[in-house]
């Protein structure tokens, strides 16, 4: 508080410099103008290429940007991303809990599952689930090696969308498990012990101390994962599921306007990523209480309040 007072005690602009040294000359960075000039020229060239190129056919871009086929495809892409992330996170959480448990059996199961999930290429997983019916025509639930209660035609349960969601979830699960494990491990052991010593049950320690801090650490890698899934989901084109990429391709295979339509897809992928980035920074802000950076910010606010 005294520091704040002494700082406001010497308003800028007066020449009561306690050091008695000459004032600083303003610093001019001439290179900055050069960099800026180069960037502007490149941008002008790009604009010239886009605006004057008859073959680029920009009107096609506008014509298809909000085309129902494209929007339907975008809907499927978003559904795949959300479902894949939710499924993968739930599975990943289970794998993390098993990996950090004290049971050697559960740890081994988790280790193997994470290995499998991260090893099999997404494309292979997708085709595997899509063609599952060829080796397992019926799926049934019941007592193992005993009576069945219900059974389904495999093809009825796992259609294109089902196969894609299962494949994406399993693909994401291994990565999410590792993201969450590193988040949990980054939490200070001392705080866990302090909470334990208070008489908290292990579940409360997780809920009140580990989770809030691990979640904050896990946000940036989780967002990376969401963006990866958004883009990787375009492999469903191979099982004929009409996502954003599929729709765009279907259109340009008829009108041969590949580049304008790829720009349409790029626009929508880009927009989703922008939205995700905003969500991420909001989440980080909200969960950063007590971290050194947020702490400094809050300190500044307190000082400003006492100054006023």
């Amino acid at each position: 508080m005294s520091a704040a007072a002494s700082r406001t005690g010497t308003p800028a602009g007066t020449d009561s410099r306690p050091s008695g040294l000459e004032p600083m000359a303003p610093r001019v960075r001439w290179q900055e103008f050069l960099y800026l000039a180069i960037v502007l020229v490149l941008l002008a060239m790009l604009a010239n290429f886009v605006l004057t190129n008859e073959r680029l056919n920009l009107p096609v871009f506008w014509e298809y940007l909000f085309h129902p086929l494209v929007l339907d495809g975008l809907r499927i892409t978003v559904i795949l991303t959300v479902a894949g992330m939710v499924g993968g996170t739930v599975l990943g959480l289970a794998l993390t809990a098993m990996r950090l448990s004290s049971s050697p059996t559960l740890r081994a199961v988790s280790f193997t599952a994470i290995y499998v999930s991260r090893t099999i290429p997404l494309l292979v997983q997708l085709l595997f689930w899509f063609f599952l019916a060829s080796v397992l025509p019926r799926i049934s639930f019941g007592i193992p090696f005993g009576p069945e209660f219900v059974s389904f035609e495999t093809n009825e349960v796992i259609n294109q969308l089902g196969a894609a969601i299962i494949a994406l979830s399993l693909f994401v699960a291994g990565y999410m498990a590792e993201i969450m494990r590193s988040g949990v491990m980054s939490v200070d052991r001392g705080q866990v012990e302090a909470a334990t010593a208070m008489g908290m049950t292990p579940l409360s320690v997780f809920r009140r101390v580990v989770f809030p801090q691990a979640a904050r650490i896990s946000i940036p890698p989780t967002m990376n994962q969401v963006i990866s899934v958004l883009k990787y989901s375009s492999v469903v084109i191979l099982i004929g599921l009409a996502d954003l990429m599929y729709s765009v391709q279907a259109i340009y295979s008829r009108n041969f306007q590949q580049i304008p339509l790829l720009l349409v897809a790029t626009f929508w992928y880009g927009l989703v990523v922008v939205v995700l980035t905003v969500v991420q920074s909001q989440l980080e802000k909200r969960l950063s209480t007590g971290l050194p950076k947020a702490a400094r910010q809050r300190m500044k606010e307190l000082e400003e309040k006492t100054d006023a």
Binding site: D188, G190, Q191, E193, A194, A195, T196, A197, M198, G199, V209, P212, Q213, R216, T289, G290, L291
Partner: peptide
């Protein structure tokens, strides 16, 4: 049972997010 004791640690171990 731990509720009958309380501990003060060498490295404080305050919950950083609170």
């Amino acid at each position: 049972q731990r509720r009958s004791t309380a501990m003060v640690f060498q490295r404080f171990n305050l919950l950083a997010h609170q």
